Amino acid sequence: MSRIDLTSLEWCELIFKDKNKNYGAYKMRQDLGRRQLAALVIVTCAAVAALTLPRLIRMAMPEQKEEMVEVTQLSMLEEPEVKDENIVRKVEPIAPPPALKSTIKFTAPVVKKDEEVSDEDELKSQQELTETKVQISIADVKGNDELNGKDIADLKEVITQAPEEVKEQPYTMVEQMPQYPGGITELLKYIAKNLRYPVIAQENGIQGRVIVRFVVTATGTVEQVQVMRSLDPNCDKEAVRVVQSLPKWIPGKQNGRNVPVYYTVPITFKLQ
């Protein structure tokens, strides 16, 4: 049996014998050999180019010479000379302040005749001085000289007022929050027992909640009562009154000491 060439025109004519040759398949089969040959040439050229292109690029580029750069270590550099210059500062002596003198004004004695001396001006005995209620001051006046000395009797007592203590700002959160005696349940019972529903608010059908904030001081008292959320002027006033009447609390603590702390309580007004 002879070898069959599938790309030959004879094989194409044999296949399409007595068939419609105007159909596209006949044209494609007829050009199959040329397409295969063209594809083979293209693949071969691409392979040769891929293998030879890197070598051609290396041949075309000039050779680069490596340059050696000498690096000098900092430890090999010579240390700069440091000149020791003694800076002399001239300090002028400060003259000491003059010494303070402790003096009392001296009143020179006046010589009088016996008949001119009254009984009150006579010198008294030790017994008379002991029995008298007059107190003799031994205080001293410091800082006066001989000429401007002052008599102790002329000096007035100076009362110095102690500086006002700066109040500590209240905390919002602390390690141990203030507590009402008996807990939150007792607090709500106290508010419900002492709260008086305003008559005007009842007649107008007003009901709701008033949010009140106050400060529990370091001693446990209630201060700085404020309405944070208002409901009605009459209800707000009643809520403030009840909170101000609260007894002492257990104060809050921060770092082991009592501190003032803000506390918020809702007070509800509800019609039965």
Results as ranks from 00 to 15, higher is better:
residue 87 I to K: 14
residue 91 V to G: 02
residue 199 V to W: 04
residue 140 D to P: 00
residue 265 V to L: 15
residue 63 E to V: 10
residue 259 V to D: 00
residue 205 G to Y: 10
residue 176 Q to V: 13
residue 251 P to M: 05
residue 263 Y to K: 07
residue 43 V to W: 03
residue 245 S to F: 02
residue 46 A to M: 15
residue 235 C to R: 01
residue 208 G to Y: 03
residue 14 L to P: 00
residue 58 R to L: 10
residue 199 V to Q: 11
residue 110 V to T: 12
residue 177 M to E: 05
residue 160 T to Q: 13
residue 147 L to R: 09
residue 46 A to E: 06
residue 122 E to F: 07
residue 255 N to L: 10
residue 61 M to E: 11
residue 225 V to W: 02
residue 262 Y to M: 06
residue 173 M to T: 12
residue 88 V to L: 14
residue 233 P to S: 11
residue 149 G to Y: 00
residue 192 A to Y: 04
residue 98 P to H: 07
residue 153 A to H: 06
residue 171 Y to E: 01
residue 215 V to K: 02
residue 43 V to Y: 08
residue 50 A to G: 13
residue 204 N to V: 02
residue 88 V to I: 15
residue 13 E to S: 08
residue 62 P to G: 04
residue 24 G to I: 15
residue 53 L to T: 09
residue 180 Y to V: 02
residue 211 I to S: 05
residue 181 P to C: 04
residue 253 K to G: 00
residue 49 A to H: 04
residue 53 L to K: 03
residue 2 S to M: 07
residue 157 E to L: 14
residue 222 V to P: 00
residue 7 T to M: 15
residue 45 C to E: 09
residue 81 E to G: 05
residue 193 K to Q: 14
residue 96 P to S: 11
residue 98 P to I: 11
residue 182 G to R: 05
residue 151 D to W: 04
residue 94 I to G: 05
residue 135 Q to W: 07
residue 253 K to M: 12
residue 267 I to P: 00
residue 200 I to H: 03
residue 151 D to F: 11
residue 65 K to V: 15
residue 186 E to P: 00
residue 137 S to I: 09
residue 126 Q to R: 07
residue 165 E to N: 03
residue 249 W to S: 01
residue 13 E to K: 15
residue 41 V to F: 08
residue 229 R to G: 01
residue 138 I to H: 13
residue 217 T to A: 10
residue 103 T to F: 02
residue 62 P to A: 13
residue 134 V to H: 07
residue 117 V to W: 05
residue 199 V to I: 12
residue 209 R to N: 13
residue 125 S to T: 13
residue 151 D to L: 10
residue 152 I to P: 01
residue 17 K to F: 13
residue 88 V to G: 02
residue 178 P to H: 04
residue 164 E to S: 14
residue 124 K to L: 08
residue 15 I to N: 07
residue 25 A to Q: 08
residue 48 V to L: 11
residue 189 K to P: 00
residue 116 E to H: 07
residue 41 V to T: 11
residue 4 I to L: 14
residue 135 Q to H: 09
residue 5 D to L: 08
residue 165 E to F: 06
residue 182 G to Y: 06
residue 203 E to Y: 08
residue 223 E to I: 10
residue 76 M to W: 04
residue 142 K to M: 07
residue 83 K to N: 09
residue 105 K to T: 02
residue 117 V to T: 12
residue 62 P to R: 06
residue 39 A to I: 10
residue 204 N to D: 13
residue 69 V to A: 09
residue 76 M to K: 11
residue 43 V to P: 00
residue 132 T to S: 15
residue 18 D to L: 06
residue 11 W to R: 06
residue 266 P to N: 05
residue 268 T to C: 03
residue 178 P to C: 07
residue 245 S to N: 15
residue 153 A to L: 12
residue 195 L to P: 00
residue 257 R to Y: 04
residue 111 V to P: 01
residue 108 A to I: 06
residue 137 S to F: 03
residue 73 Q to N: 08
residue 125 S to G: 15
residue 225 V to E: 01
residue 34 R to S: 14
residue 187 L to M: 11
residue 222 V to H: 02
residue 121 D to R: 15
residue 246 L to T: 01
residue 62 P to L: 05
residue 198 P to M: 06
residue 202 Q to M: 10
residue 93 P to K: 15
residue 139 A to F: 08
residue 223 E to C: 02
residue 73 Q to V: 05
residue 33 G to C: 03
residue 155 L to V: 14
residue 182 G to H: 05
residue 224 Q to G: 01
residue 138 I to W: 15
residue 156 K to R: 15
residue 183 G to P: 00
residue 231 L to C: 03
